[in-house]
Design a protein around this nucleic acid. Structure first.
Length: 283
DNA sequence: GTCCAGGCATGCA
DNA sequence: TGCATGCATGGA
């Protein structure tokens, strides 16, 4: 655990002492869908019903338009700023592909997102591309969320989505995923699945519960446990990760290879592999 | 027009 | 259990 210092100055709030945090890498690596880079080079967006503008200034993680309380109680946990990521990177197997990826993507933090928001977002992510996932999530919030002082919208309540039904949801154009979102909302709103209780289970138990929801399989469930429930050992395997594993680790890859922080390794590999493709594309 | 996108449900062997 | 196919939508 890192000891952080919060300092307020010129209507900004600076957090000092965090380890290896890059807003760009953290918000561009596909784990959340509501943050964008603005003209000032800050990352701005909404998580649940909290708005922030986030940037780096020297050693500090700086927040504009926030209060000290909000930074301390919401954003520091959300951005996982107290965790010692350097120590975790050192725990990965040396001289492997993960070393390169980790070095390159060392600014990624695993966000502690709201479980319901994460569940919805990753149901939407299936067989979809990131720009359109963002578009659909935005539409979901604008149509069913609450308007906030910043001008944006909160992520919608479970009950509001459950009440909308499949037909009501058609406005967001999520296609065949609408029925999955509604099934998730009904199961959670109806108490069949308690998302907070999942945090107290083992990773395997929590995942098994999530897979009871229609449209939630191994991959989506892994993402929800990793980004929404705090299981850093979760290792979501999607098309990109499959490619990486085959390329660098062979067919007989053992899922336990990266240990208790496999999810962090997964994000390094995912972001690194996607970055490589982009690079090739432009070269 | 065709292909593809942080998958999953379904049907069939 | 393992594999093929359809699925809504929109950008390249």
């Amino acid at each position: 655990m890192k000891q952080l210092k919060i300092i307020e100055y010129k209507n900004r709030i600076g957090v000092f002492g965090a380890c290896c945090f890059s807003p760009e890498q953290t918000f561009e690596c596909g784990q959340c869908f509501r943050f964008e880079r603005n003209n000032a080079g800050e990352y701005e967006g909404i998580a649940s019903s909290h708005f922030a503008r986030i940037l780096l200034e020297g050693e500090a993680v700086v927040f504009r338009d926030s209060t000290v309380n909000e930074v301390r109680d919401f954003w520091i946990p959300y951005l996982d700023l107290e965790r010692d990521y350097e120590k975790i990177v050192c725990s990965f197997p040396e001289n492997s592909h993960i070393s390169t990826a980790a070095h390159c993507c060392s600014g990624i933090h695993i966000l502690k997102q709201d479980p319901w928001e994460t569940l919805c977002s990753f149901i939407i992510s299936q067989n979809n591309n990131i720009p359109r996932i963002k578009k659909i999530v935005k539409s979901l919030c604008e149509n069913f969320g609450e308007k906030l002082d910043c001008g944006g919208y909160s992520f919608p309540d479970i009950e509001k989505i459950a009440a909308a039904g499949v037909e009501g949801l058609s406005i967001i154009k999520s296609g065949f995923r609408a029925k999955y979102i509604i099934d998730a909302a009904e199961k959670v709103a109806g108490g069949k699945i308690n998302l907070e209780t999942l945090k107290l289970m083992t990773y395997e138990q929590a995942k098994a519960e999530l897979i009871k929801i229609k449209g939630v399989g191994e991959k989506v469930a892994s993402c929800v446990t990793l980004f929404g429930l705090g299981f850093l050992n979760a290792f979501p395997v999607d098309v990109w990760i499959k490619r990486v594993l085959q390329k660098y680790y062979g067919e007989d890859f053992d899922i336990g290879y990266f240990g208790e922080y496999a999810g962090i390794a997964q994000q390094y590999l995912f972001h690194y592999e996607r970055g490589n493709k982009k690079f090739r594309h432009f070269s």
